[in-house]
Nucleic acid binder design. Sequence first.
DNA 1: TCCGGTTTTGCACGTTTATGCAAATTACGG
DNA 2: CCGTAATTTGCATAAACGTGCAAAACCGGA
Lengths: 267, 267
Amino acid sequence: MSSVSYLPEQRRSEILAILSRGEPVSAAELAVRFSVSEDAIRRDLRKLAAEGLCEKVYGGALPVSPSAQPYSSRAGEDRSRKEALATVALTLLMPRQCVFLDVGSTNALLAEMLPSNLDLTVVTNSVPVMAALMDRPGISLFALGGSVGGQAGGMTGAQAVSDMERYRFDLAFLGTCSLCPETGVTAFDGDDAEVKRAAARNSEKIAVMVTTDKLGARLPHKVLPMEQIDYLVSEGEAAQQPLHLYQTQNNQILTTANVDTNSVKEK
Amino acid sequence: MSSVSYLPEQRRSEILAILSRGEPVSAAELAVRFSVSEDAIRRDLRKLAAEGLCEKVYGGALPVSPSAQPYSSRAGEDRSRKEALATVALTLLMPRQCVFLDVGSTNALLAEMLPSNLDLTVVTNSVPVMAALMDRPGISLFALGGSVGGQAGGMTGAQAVSDMERYRFDLAFLGTCSLCPETGVTAFDGDDAEVKRAAARNSEKIAVMVTTDKLGARLPHKVLPMEQIDYLVSEGEAAQQPLHLYQTQNNQILTTANVDTNSVKEK
DNA sequence: TCCGGTTTTGCACGTTTATGCAAATTACGG
DNA sequence: CCGTAATTTGCATAAACGTGCAAAACCGGA
């Protein structure tokens, strides 16, 4: 930011960093940001595009198709579905909010995709989320303490629960092991469920992201009834479990289907 | 600043210190900073890059990309040197002990190499350590809570310090930013230093692992004097900084050269 | 103390890379 | 179909680079 002069390579690397979290870049903006002419920026973008690291378009560049670039070979199908969920979930975020990100692979993906320009504060008990956000400028990151249980992939137990009282969230993304209309969110692990309930207690709004395979099943530990969920982010209409069953008086159901992919930048 | 002439090795060490803080360096700036020609600096950077300690780019050098660093890919000899250190450090562990693993890449390697059959309890503030150990059977893992600062790669700040009081360690591995005979362990970051001191307070024994490039330099924040260190794990005799300078009345010096516990005092 | 070998350093040289400007070209919106 | 803005291309300048070389500093042994 304050660095008077960027190294060329460093500049490209920063551009790539912006791109890699899904944000489009404008040549004009970058020119001011790095105090160089637009020509230099355009040359950078052209170079990156030549390496397949972004897509050059009129006015700037777009990140390469999310599921295509990184390590698509690995579990690609499932990952791209969760990426779609996370993309929709991003729309729930507002500047300067404090959000809780629970354990779970979908939340970890959401973390990777968080924009840097919203001045967010993130609290988490998930190790992957911490790994994704720990050196991201523009995001304040806090971690719960306590026992790290292998099963959930994050901190659970008494200390994590009591640490939760230190924070107040605008929005909490609960990792959802399972969701059914009658019982709401349920979990495998008792300690994990305890943490989720504590997060819910301290949050204004509660959001859950679910892939269709998580709909319908019931697990041993009750977390929250449907009524307490404010945002349900799901895939398109599920055959086995129609989404309308999950509609309550005060929740909002967002699906990956009816959200158009207008990834453009507003001006 | 004050020192009129730097030893070449000392200069490289300082450059490395800046780099390891995550800051890029410019050849021109370093040239004036050390009052040498840019050629000398470029030679230094080239040398460091050859060892995989930085990435040489046009205009200067960048710290090794955090994203390229993950848990196995970096085949640099730096890693193997640290692995050697960690191997030696493993001999300090006894069954059923409770150990603290601080932030730092060497400690992260140690975490990966921890045996599963010792019934260890590990407490850490390092995200990579958590990632390495979270689903390892045979190891109970606990994490400190608090603010996650990108620089150190783990939790720091007031909450981490107060969380430390919850535990009592048999052995604490402090991440050593730098070590010199007169000042002992020093660190870049004040909050980080605070956490290290808290760990030391709550531990029976204190161990540090250092690669030779960390010997000699002094950083702003004092952590612990040499006298409080019980185990120093180092590489073989260092040219610039003979190990015997680090010998105190009650420490034990282990090197990767002679793995035997022939330490104790000078004969 | 002197001496040979090694390392480090600064400088000169030709080469590569980065940058900004101007002119020609292309894409976009109406 | 036209005008504006973005883009490409070519070019000139400046900065950074690698290499070879010789002087200087340093080190260890006699």
